[in-house]
Design a binder for these strands. Structure first.
Lengths: 167, 167
DNA sequence: TTGGAATGTCAACAAGGCTGACGTATTGTC
DNA sequence: GACAATACGTCAGCCTTGTTGACATTCCAA
């Protein structure tokens, strides 16, 4: 299992020690905490959680999407999503309209108030990401994105790719 | 708030459209799912969750650490940590020993069985990370790490840095 | 037209966060 | 030596967000 580095930590070829991999794992852990910290503060003020954030984000991203589609993107059960969706609808942030072609479906869109919340959350999160990008430099940003994309499951990457065009 | 790109998506200077930032946010979301997917499967078999994983990981990382120290690394309350720690101790994965210098403290270490679980989890997670690194290339890896590190809060980065040497 | 599949809703439960209160052992200070 | 502070454990109860089970509605195909 554990590697015995023949030379040292190579830079041209990809030789990775357990320590390097472990450090990468920890970087993900701590960075994800930072990544969610700012939106969490905003959400708390309104009594929402991360689940609400995710729902709002992806509805904004794909206006008119169905509950089923949102389900597969978020990777949760419909019952779980339904709870947060119900709250958002009752609070007037999300609009749920019966489908015209298939009346079993509900098409979800953000109201003006929902869009405002999305903007507040997105701005907070983008600000941190912009600062990180600025600190790390353009090449680092490209590397960051390509490692993250390679880390997704295939099914996730398909959904990730399907969301609008590539940055 | 929204930007009006004067030229296009620049590559030499760091000019970032809302779309690019949004794509970065989504990359974090989907990648983190992939990042936790493999360990989650292993944990489920044994009736553990991510909280147990985190505890085991950082005890392995800092053998003999105190409960208080672990608390500040994980960023949870002692009541929360105590629940998972109690389970791990009862199951014989973690050893809790009264401190010699300060007998109020408990020093935590992994038993052989605990170390075995850590290895299984770490191998699963490292494998995916290694594949992602290999797919993205050495320069991407460096960029990945530097963006993640820039995204942490200062207090988190201090703890991240304190964990062994730099990869 | 009827039975099965798909979509979405309601109810109940579990994991794992949280706060608050409290007990105990130990340390360090006045 | 008395006493406050520290480190840890625990009980009780709450919230979010995941889960499964049961069920109503709607569509479609046999």
């Amino acid at each position: 299992m554990s590697q015995t580095p023949s030379k040292a930590s190579g830079e041209s070829l990809l030789f990775l020690t357990d320590e390097q991999l472990r450090k990468g794992i920890e970087a993900m852990f701590f960075a994800y905490r930072g990544f969610t910290a700012d939106p969490d503060r905003i959400l708390e003020e309104r009594g929402y959680g991360r689940a609400h954030h995710r729902a709002v984000h992806f509805i904004r991203r794909s206006p008119g999407t169905t509950v089923n589609n949102l389900l597969s993107i978020l990777g949760v059960t419909k019952q779980s999503l339904n709870r947060v969706l119900r709250a958002l609808i009752e609070d007037g942030l999300v609009l749920s309209e019966v489908g015209t072609r298939d009346r079993r479906e509900r098409h979800l869109t953000l109201t003006a108030e929902g869009a405002a919340l999305d903007r507040a959350l997105s701005d907070a999160q983008s600000h941190r990401m912009r600062m990180a990008y600025k600190a790390a430099g353009p090449e680092a940003v490209a590397g960051f994105r390509s490692v993250l994309e390679a880390m997704m499951d295939d099914t996730m990457r398909a959904q990730y790719d399907a969301l609008k065009d590539r940055g």
